[in-house]
Simulated assay, not measured.
Amino acid sequence: MTRIIDGNEIADRITADLEPCLETLADAGVTPGLATVLMSDDGASETYVSMKRQACADLGIESIHHELEPDAAADALFDRIDELNADPSVHGILVQLPVPDHVERRAVLERIDPLKDVDGFHPENVGRLVTGNPRFKPCTPHGIQKLLEAEDVETAGKDVVVVGRSNIVGKPLANLLIQKADDGNATVTICHSRTEDLAEKTRRADIVVAAAGVPELVDGSMIGEGATVIDVGVNRVDADTEKGYELVGDVEFDSASRVADAITPVPGGVGPLTITMLLYNTITAASLQTDVDVSLP
Rank of each mutant, 00 (worst) to 15 (best):
L97P: 05
A86V: 12
E104S: 15
V103Q: 00
A72K: 12
H66A: 07
L38E: 09
T47M: 11
V90P: 00
S89K: 14
S50P: 06
F78Q: 06
D75P: 04
P32D: 15
A44P: 02
K52S: 01
G33K: 04
D79Q: 10
D101E: 08
H65V: 15
A28C: 07
L68C: 03
D87L: 00
H66E: 06
V90A: 07
A26I: 14
L94E: 01
P100D: 09
I112R: 02
P98T: 15
E104G: 06
P70N: 11
V30K: 04
L34V: 13
E83D: 13
R53V: 05
I64G: 03
H65D: 10
P70H: 07
T31Q: 09
S45M: 13
T36G: 03
R80H: 03
F78M: 06
H66K: 07
I93F: 03
S40M: 05
L84W: 07
V103W: 00
S40Q: 09
I64E: 00
A44E: 08
H66N: 08
D75S: 13
D58R: 13
P88M: 05
D75C: 10
H91Q: 02
L34K: 09
Y48L: 03
V49D: 02
P100L: 10
A44N: 04
D41K: 10
T47D: 02
L38H: 05
I81R: 03
E69V: 14
L97V: 10
L34P: 06
E83T: 14
H102Q: 12
H65A: 11
L38Y: 04
L68H: 06
L94G: 03
D101V: 15
A86N: 12
A74C: 12
D42E: 04
C56G: 10
V49T: 10
L77N: 01
V108N: 00
